[in-house]
């Protein structure tokens, strides 16, 4: 498993594109997709340490994508990132194995922290240690 691999799933390319570039800049092997089917396809092709998942997708709903991920790739950590209000979505996400639930807008630094935290707590994850993400100079 590529421990620095991050998959971003969100239906808004304007959100996905700068995030992917900024994470790549920080040394992450980052990939972005715009819907649930593409997300599952990407997971089948490559293994990811962390998936950043929006709850509202044009094809599948976030919870079923999450369930599918946790079923097939239990070592992959999922961070839910949603603009939606319902805490029930968040609770359901956490019950289904997501490591955290964030509501947009989230500052990039916060997001980095959460990715690191999710990875540290995961059985697979030594992402931060391997890649020294948090000590990467911000250049």
């Amino acid at each position: 498993m590529n421990l620095s691999a991050i998959l971003i799933v969100d239906d808004e390319p304007e959100f996905v594109s700068p995030l992917v570039r900024r994470l790549r800049k920080r040394g992450f092997d980052c990939q972005g997709v715009l819907d649930g089917v593409s997300a599952l396809a990407a997971l089948r092709e490559n293994s990811f340490a962390v998936v950043l998942l929006d709850m509202r997708l044009p094809d599948l709903d976030g919870v079923s994508v999450l369930r599918e991920i946790k079923k097939n790739w239990p070592a992959t950590e999922v961070l839910i990132l949603s603009g939606h209000a319902s805490i029930r979505d968040g609770e359901e996400g956490l019950r289904q194995g997501a490591s955290d639930y964030l509501i947009k807008p989230v500052e990039f630094e916060t997001l980095l922290e959460k990715i690191r935290a999710a990875n540290v707590g995961s059985p697979a994850g030594l992402l931060t240690q391997d890649n020294n993400i948090n000590v990467l100079p911000n250049t």
Partner: peptide, 20 residues
């Protein structure tokens, strides 16, 4: 909730684009 949701997404994008 729906207003917040509709606004949160663009806010995220604005913030990220500015950060980028």
């Amino acid at each position: 909730a729906s207003v917040a949701h509709e606004i949160n997404n663009p806010l995220q994008i604005i913030g990220d684009q500015a950060g980028w």
